[in-house]
Design a protein around this nucleic acid. Sequence first.
DNA 1: AGAAATTTGTCCGTATGTATC
DNA 2: AGATACATACGGACAAATTTC
Lengths: 133, 133
Amino acid sequence: MPTPHYGQPRYRAIADELRKRIESGAIPPGALLPAESVLTSEFRASRGTIRQAIAALREARFVTTEHGRGTYVNPVRREDCEMEIRQRQVSADPELAALFAVEAGTVLIEQERIVREGGAVGVVIRSYRLFRE
Amino acid sequence: MPTPHYGQPRYRAIADELRKRIESGAIPPGALLPAESVLTSEFRASRGTIRQAIAALREARFVTTEHGRGTYVNPVRREDCEMEIRQRQVSADPELAALFAVEAGTVLIEQERIVREGGAVGVVIRSYRLFRE
DNA sequence: AGAAATTTGTCCGTATGTATC
DNA sequence: AGATACATACGGACAAATTTC
């Protein structure tokens, strides 16, 4: 039977299932994912489809694959990580003015990103660009 | 002939060739890449291999693909972009102190990234974290 | 509005190359 | 050297979105 994929594609459903196992701790960080051949049997999917699912997990940084070895579950991956962004105009301080080669006090665009990790503020990131039209 | 891939894989060689055409302007930003069927003929490669090449370009943000439409060349993509990183300790200004819930003047780790785009400074990014340990 | 053609998306099966154990 | 596991590549089939007529 060739291929009906109503709703969600097969490879994505498989990726989701594997992701659940990772997040639940069923496959802990550092552990190897079952081999492609094993997953092929378990999910009754072709190798290409299994590889697509693993590629999706890899892209999302859940796992890392090593040639001839296997696919490992990556450590951590913060769950409770929110980010706020704010943008405003500020005057260039002397250092920024020098970097951008403008006069001190020139208007810059500042974006501030506040990364919260489990409630507390983890990192504050401020970026500056020249304001041009 | 099934598949020898000595040295560079086929899909990567194709991706490189397409990238050259994009960087040279032969396929300008906003333009459509030749359809997969056309590339299949030109490179005498299977569709899967062509799609792998395009996927590589997509991952590198050179192109964007739309279902039923085609694959477009993305605008810009700065070539000459260098970055410097510097780290130092600074005193928390009132706003940062409030965010981190510490007293003003508390020591923070500041990392400054200076992104140059073609000589001039394009963006300055400053990140702040608490200094612990 | 509707049908056909075009183009990308998904999936299958198979074969062979390459790295690691 | 052999077994295992991932990487590359081919070819075919059908699905879904878009464009064209």
